[in-house]
Design a binder for these strands. Structure first.
Lengths: 218, 218
DNA sequence: CCGGAGATCAACCTTTCGGTTGATACTCGG
DNA sequence: CCGAGTATCAACCGAAAGGTTGATCTCCGG
């Protein structure tokens, strides 16, 4: 009778209000509750389960200020309670970086929409998720297809380690000392990194790696 | 009778819906219209002026996907039409980096709020702006105060602008072209920046500036 | 009205970085 | 067992960046 029951998870009150208003206009969709972070969302889900009124879809942002991030929350939701089926998680976020999308999909999200999507798309995505289907924003789907067709070379652990030091502003010599290798080796690694990231200097490498969430912003 | 009339400018339909719902709950505040980008906002303002029903406050995001960015839009709004007073512009955005704040203030914004602010704060800010006063989010105000109290070598607006470009991985030559200045000037600025940040190369400068929230992580 | 700070540019020099080539060694999977 | 990928190092060269000195112009505040 109440249609699809949704749990909203976003750290911005403004966004929550927007989704509530937007989804409330649609027939068959009800916003059951909302949370400001991942931990609160898990608590809400448990509460609804205990009441025998589980939510049908979790609509969640990936970037959440403090506390548990969206990927972790998604993992925990999908892990769920033994015996009770976990609700589908639909990611509604701002960025469409490869790392974000992959992390969300790996964590078990049923869909990935961007916040600038028109309301109708969001509605469709919610319906898909509730029906157990997958929903990807066209932009996101295109990126995934591109990745499969044209797989980006993966960075090795050592290269990532180097990148992380690079981002702190160390010179090649300093990195070499830090890692107990020669400066020549550092340079070789850097050339490989530049090639894989498609850049030609260290600052651009840091920028690219940060954008793709290969390294965490320093 | 209609109270304070607002023009919402944000590229995300979700955020616009949220602000509309949120502000609609408040007495004395009316959302007159909304736009998805700076150009549309200017057109809207002109239209309302022509109708003899100017808006009282423009509530705008700084980051807007395509087209004119928020700072440029703010400048153009404040430039306005000869003879007609420009409405106050209240910035409501996601980041609180020095670069964004300075740019907004220089462009003539009357306030700077963060999107994760509670509705009541946003309401207060709108009222302040409409009354011709300035409104800063507590976090933003604190940062500005800190800048003043802590005579940490203050970077000039130009230097911050340079840093922001630096962080995207541009070379000195590219930065020079971007800013329409010579490479020599870029180098001079960089030397000053390094001195103020206590570093001696560009990657370290980016790291230091990001940590101190002088620039926003790219 | 003068000093200081910021923005602009130039010339010069040193150091670092980027790019290439080539080599050795280890590991892992087919 | 052998090739692919990774990690290591060396030598070399040109390009970019770092550092210094010095100069002009503008704007702002005392």
């Amino acid at each position: 009778m109440s249609g699809i029951r949704i749990l909203l998870v976003d750290d911005h009150p403004v966004v929550r209000a927007g989704l509530r208003a937007m989804l409330g206009d649609f027939e068959g969709i009800t916003v059951a509750a909302e949370s400001g972070d991942g931990a609160a969302a898990l608590a809400q889900l448990a509460r609804f389960r205990a009441l025998g009124e589980p939510v049908d879809v979790v609509l969640m942002d990936l970037q959440m200020g403090a506390g548990m991030d969206g990927v972790t929350a998604t993992q925990k939701i999908k892990a769920g309670e033994a015996g009770t089926p976990a609700p589908p998680v639909l990611i509604l976020t701002t960025y469409d970086s490869d790392a974000d999308i992959l992390a969300a999909v790996e964590a078990g999200a049923s869909g990935y929409m961007l916040k600038d999507a028109p309301p109708e798309h969001i509605r469709q995505a919610v319906l898909s998720a509730a029906a157990g289907r997958t929903a990807l924003a066209p932009e996101v789907a295109a990126r995934l297809m591109g990745r499969i067709r044209n797989p980006e070379p993966a960075l090795s652990a050592r290269e990532i380690q180097l990148l992380q030091l690079l981002a702190t502003g160390l010179t090649n010599r300093a990195i070499a000392r830090q890692l107990f290798i020669s400066e020549a080796t550092v340079k070789t690694h850097l050339v490989h990194i530049y090639g894989k990231l498609g850049v030609d200097n260290r600052t651009a490498a840091i920028s690219a790696a940060t954008q793709r969430r290969i390294i965490r912003p320093v």
